[in-house]
Write a protein that binds this DNA or RNA. Structure first.
Length: 414
DNA sequence: TCTGGGGTCCTAGGACCC
DNA sequence: TCTGGGGTCCTAGGACCC
């Protein structure tokens, strides 16, 4: 049997809320809801203990939170602050292992295999890590330790708010058996219901069925699930080496109006703005997308997506917008109130083979102009430069209705 | 309760090709 | 001529995560 891996999962406790409290200590001990202002369309990203006592929880609509806890303080999210703090945490983690992977803004995996000489046995290393994170960032984290990402992740959740839990190698199935199937990452509401239909409520119940049966009922997922019940990183992303780079698969931006609209001018201005945002990210990542997708959500929440694959991949705002606008005009139920619009780019390829790379054609000139505009925006703020058709209503929406839509990008600007 | 934004992965059907 | 079988690409939708 190969030497077992020693994986840590570090889970920042109440990350968004804690960061807000660092910036405004007067929030401590009060009912706080992070995610937006009263009456806005949106959901709660984090709620303080005092707010949770009233039933407020993350992912809940802001308007519901307001009803449950009218006296709560509502705070906008500050992604720039969270990114800075996340980077601080990352630096601490990197001082413990060369194999570190931020799985999201507030959680990370470390492969600590073979670091015993340097950091001591797992529990000691984890406590030390815990204290160092606290000392350098003022933030609490819980740490789960096990032979797989799965075990590390599940055990860190059980160690909240700032504890450490080590599942000793060999004890995986015993640790998991009494847990709710919902504790397995990837098992959501729907899968939980389906499993319950088979009488499966706890992870241990999965052991009563053989792999083939689970595969029949749940496809590829069922097979992975069978492995997970044993604590294995069965297939998919979980199976990858900690810290391995993976290329992005898609880039998207979307916008929900505070007030539904059927105004074509406003809608197309928003699509222009979203196309620009996507184009800019493509250029930053040096990516060229072949497939462009429009997302359209109506007042009644019915949602459609319509995609189009181009002959040649692109990173140009104008080409993105042209494709998106065509999709919109073809598919929009004319006059129907629109709630949300989205633009997504995917199927990334190396730059389009143009055969005439040296030639300075209109595409190349566009590309240079856009890169110059990107740099101006970096320097002077988001609203400095825009293609003309983006001006008519896309920015009005952002600046008047939703001033926090682009956090921290306009500071120091007249 | 009235439901954000940015992602990943999977499924399933149809087109098209050999 | 009631018609197989596989592979790949594309599209649409949905579950799930933070």
């Amino acid at each position: 049997m190969p030497f077992p891996r020693n994986i840590f999962h570090v889970d920042m406790y109440d990350f968004f809320l804690s960061v807000e409290e660092i910036f405004d200590p007067s929030l401590k001990g009060k009912a706080v809801v992070v995610g937006g202002q009263r009456g806005e369309r949106g959901v709660v990203s984090a709620a303080s203990y005092e707010a949770r006592k009233f039933g407020v929880h993350s992912a809940m609509p802001l308007r519901t939170a307001e009803k449950l806890c009218p006296h709560a303080i509502f705070v906008n999210g500050h992604m720039d602050r969270y990114r800075d703090c996340s980077e601080q945490v990352h630096r601490v983690l990197c001082s413990f292992s060369p194999m570190v992977e931020m799985a999201s803004i507030d959680e990370a995996y470390l492969d600590m295999t073979g670091t015993e000489r340097l950091h001591g046995p797992p529990l000691r290393a984890a406590h030390c890590l815990n204290q160092k994170v606290k000392a350098e960032t003022q933030l609490n984290c819980s740490i789960g330790i096990g032979i797989s990402r799965l075990i590390a992740k599940v055990s860190s959740a059980k160690a909240k708010p700032h504890g450490v839990l080590w599942v000793i190698p060999g004890q995986e199935a015993r640790f998991l058996a009494p847990l709710d199937v919902r504790d397995i990452p990837g098992v959501g509401k729907v899968t939980e219901q389906n499993l319950q239909g088979l009488g499966i409520r706890r992870v241990g119940d999965l052991g009563r069925f053989d792999d083939a049966f689970l595969e029949d009922h749940f496809g590829k997922w069922g097979l992975a699930l069978a492995g997970k019940a044993r604590g294995e990183d069965a297939g998919g992303w979980f199976d990858t080496e900690v810290g391995a780079e993976s290329d992005p698969k898609s880039i998207s931006h979307e916008h929900t109006y505070n007030d539904d609209t059927a105004d074509v001018t406003q809608i197309e201005a928003t699509l222009m703005r979203l196309s620009e945002m996507v184009g800019r990210r493509l250029r930053e990542g040096d990516l060229h997308a072949k497939t462009l997708q429009l997302k359209l959500r109506y007042k009644d929440f019915t949602t459609i997506t319509r995609a189009r694959t181009l002959d040649a991949p692109t990173q140009l705002d104008t080409e993105i917008f042209a494709a998106i606008r065509t999709l919109f005009r073809k598919n929009w139920h004319k006059g129907a109130l629109v709630r949300l619009l989205g633009v997504q780019a995917s199927s990334f390829e190396g730059r389009a083979e143009q055969g005439n790379l040296l030639e300075d054609g209109p595409r190349e000139r566009w590309q240079r102009a856009l890169s110059a505009a990107d740099k101006l925006r970096d320097k002077f703020g988001e609203s400095t430069v825009s293609l003309a058709s983006g001006l008519k209503g896309g920015f009005r929406e952002r600046t008047q209705e939703n001033p926090a839509a682009v956090p921290g990008k306009n500071k120091g600007q007249s």
